[in-house]
Design a protein around this nucleic acid. Structure first.
Length: 609
RNA sequence: GGGCGUGUGGCGCAACUUGGAUAGCGCAUCGGGCUUCGGACCCGAGGGUUGCGGGUUCAAAUCCCGUCACGCCCGCCA
């Protein structure tokens, strides 16, 4: 019994009433559908503004139309006995529907209890294969809080799609060839001979040489890879501490070594998508014309894919990567285990030696990439569109930058380096643990009775909830004071409500399954409000999936928790006289919904805290 | 110059895609509530011309046009 069914029933009644009362008027199902909403409690459980919409057409005032429809419903006995809508009334141009509390409560609670951990899931994905790419941090620095936001979004969106029966592959792209890696090697002491030539020229030459060497799997490339792998291993320690896991990492050096770029460019040339200007500014490059005009130059704007020195640009490598993701180009990638993750699953990596595994070949890819990269992502989509009319299969989920009051977190400038504590994912977790510990001591609880596990989970919940509860599009200005504020709008708050549910259930001794069918009074109280909210889970998760927005789920689980908080204070469960079993079932279902929804955010619950 | 995003009580956010009845939540402020299932809780109060100006509509935070502010992007970089 999800909320959609109640809405649907109401819509059918409305459609039939319309047919009865105004046979000449035609309204699309969709129109009736959008007129239905959830009003304030005093106006019932569902409300339709249909009469307001018809007023103009019928040249009658909305109140009369509502009355006429209401009359048609009662006289035509349009409310079915087996249905869950018990009453409909007309008021101020609206038609309001009241749900039968007892029937609805029983059906909703039964469904939650029966489905358990899969409540809220759907099968809309039909086992479609998809990729979520995140966070693809360069292997030359620790994850800062901006990378963390990316990773948390990617992880949660993966969960949300898995809950929709999609086959999700979590991929991390490791750029071990970029300038940043070169800079590191440089810093670590590359031969600086050649100082007699112009410095920029020397640098450029070295860069070309480095790219060549990598193709040949030369010594420097091996060294770069070794350093990068060590760095990624360290970054993954951070990921693991946050419960973030991947399926496979794709290394840029392996994309180059497997000649994916060349093969992609060949394909583009064959299809006449790319051009090779013989003269002018782009002589010697391989370029693709874009749809827009370059205002400054007054000529066609082009994107360079292969530079005149023969080296592929970022966009070319990214295109090749996506051709692979979508199975548009063959691959000889070999994989080996990178490390066994704490969740028991191995994360694989592309490698020079290993075995072929069936990664990639996805129907679509969701890329969690900062909104600053919307332009290159758009170009990528356009080119993919031209190649195989498949551009729509790349979905860019842009998220707002995380910055500091004093400026950016730039890796290059070291903005992530703080004075006392860094703005890294590691330090944030450390600080949050201290904070939850402090809070526990204030409340007189034994803070580290479980070897710090409780504080660890609470700290993770606080951080994850804080980062996921707002629309990804919004940018975040990070401040320690606010980040460490454990207010009521938080992960720990939801966990607290969950723990309270657990506590009650521990004491009831009722077999929950038997609670069904025994609700006698199911009054229109806060408990019913709660049940109605619980019924929305699938609808909510589905919306979050459609919009790539975990914040919708955070908002929902917070609402459920708040309603439970009120329920808990005002309605006795253990000492209930009439509705004890129904209330126990409500508690059980609430606990399940909080568990499932927090799970989608990557947050683990605690039985006691 | 062009593109994208954001703008909602002092602060942080929700509602905008699909226009509906009194714009929700938290923090902060003020005032209440532990003999009852866990106080990391609950109840109440004050605080809003939804950046600004037009338009459409019976009805606009929501749709349209304009405008302002802030951020990001528009390189043979990555």
């Amino acid at each position: 019994m999800d909320s959609k069914k109640a809405t649907k029933e109401f819509e059918t009644v409305l459609a039939n009433a319309l047919k009865e009362a105004y046979p000449d008027i035609r309204r699309e199902k969709e129109e009736i559908h959008v007129s239905v909403s959830v009003p304030r409690a005093e106006y019932g459980d569902l409300s339709s503004s249909l009469p307001l919409g018809l007023a103009r057409k019928l040249k009658t005032n909305p109140g009369q139309i509502a009355e006429a429809l209401s009359k048609a419903i009662s006289e035509g006995s349009l409310l079915q006995k087996s249905g869950i809508i018990g009453k409909i009334s007309a008021e101020g141009g609206y038609l309001n529907a009241w749900i039968d509390e007892k029937k609805y409560s029983e059906r909703v609670l039964k469904e939650v209890i029966t489905k358990g951990q899969s409540y809220g899931n759907s099968d809309e994905g039909q086992n479609i294969r998809m990729i979520v790419e995140f966070p693809s941090v360069n292997p030359n620095k620790p994850w800062h809080i901006g990378h963390l936001r990316n990773a948390l979004l990617g992880d949660s969106i993966s969960n949300i799609f898995k809950a929709g029966a999609f086959l999700v592959e979590k991929i991390d792209y490791i750029d071990d060839l970029g300038l940043q890696m070169a800079e590191i090697l440089w810093g670590m002491g590359i031969d600086e001979s050649g100082k007699d030539v112009k410095y920029d020229r020397f640098l450029g030459e070295e860069y070309v040489k480095a790219n060549k060497k990598i193709k040949e799997a030369g010594a420097e490339a091996t060294r770069a890879r070794r350093i990068a792998e060590r760095s990624v291993m360290a970054q993954y320690e951070t990921a693991f501490s946050y419960g973030i896991y991947h399926d496979v990492m794709i290394w840029e050096s392996d994309i180059i070594r497997n000649r994916l770029v060349e093969r992609t460019m060949e394909l583009l040339r064959e299809q006449g998508i790319s051009q090779e200007p013989k003269k002018g500014k782009y002589a010697g490059c391989v370029v693709i014309e874009t749809e827009e005009k370059d205002v400054k130059e007054g000529e066609e704007k082009v994107k360079v894919f292969i530079r005149s020195n023969g080296v592929a640009t970022y966009i070319a490598k990214d295109l090749a990567f996506h051709m692979w993701k979508l199975g548009l180009i063959g691959t000889d990638f070999l994989y080996r285990s990178f490390v066994l993750q704490p969740n028991g699953q191995t994360v694989f990596t592309t490698s020079k030696t290993g075995e072929p595994i069936d990664f990639g070949n996805a129907n679509f890819s969701i890329n969690i990439i900062g909104s600053a990269q919307q332009y290159p992502q758009k170009v990528l989509k356009e080119v993919l569109d031209a190649v195989g009319k498949n551009g729509y299969r790349v979905i860019h989920v842009p998220y707002g930058e995380v910055s500091l009051k004093e400026g950016s977190l730039s890796g290059r400038k070291g903005g992530w380096l703080g004075e006392e504590r860094d703005y890294t994912a590691d330090d944030l977790l450390k600080e949050m643990k201290l904070k939850t510990m402090e809070k526990a001591n204030e409340a007189g609880k034994n803070a580290d009775g479980n070897g710090g596990e409780v504080q660890e989970k609470l700290a993770l919940a606080a951080i994850k909830f804080e980062f996921l509860r707002m629309d990804p599009a919004k940018k975040i200005v990070f401040e320690w004071e606010r980040a460490l504020d454990l207010s009521s709008n938080s992960g720990p708050y939801c966990m607290y409500m969950y723990a309270r549910c657990s506590r009650i259930l521990e004491k009831t001794g009722i077999v929950v399954e038997s609670a069904i069918g025994i609700g006698k009074h199911a009054k229109r109280d806060i408990g019913f409000e709660l049940v109605k909210e619980l019924s929305r889970a699938e609808e909510v998760v589905s919306k979050a999936r459609k919009e790539y927005r975990p914040d919708i789920i955070a908002e929902y689980v917070l609402r459920v928790s708040q309603l439970f908080g009120k329920f808990y204070e005002s309605v006795p469960v253990l000492n209930a006289e009439e509705d004890r079993k129904l209330r126990v079932a409500t508690v059980f279902a609430t606990r399940q919904v909080i568990y499932n929804m927090l799970g989608l955010l990557g947050i683990k619950t605690l039985e006691k805290m």
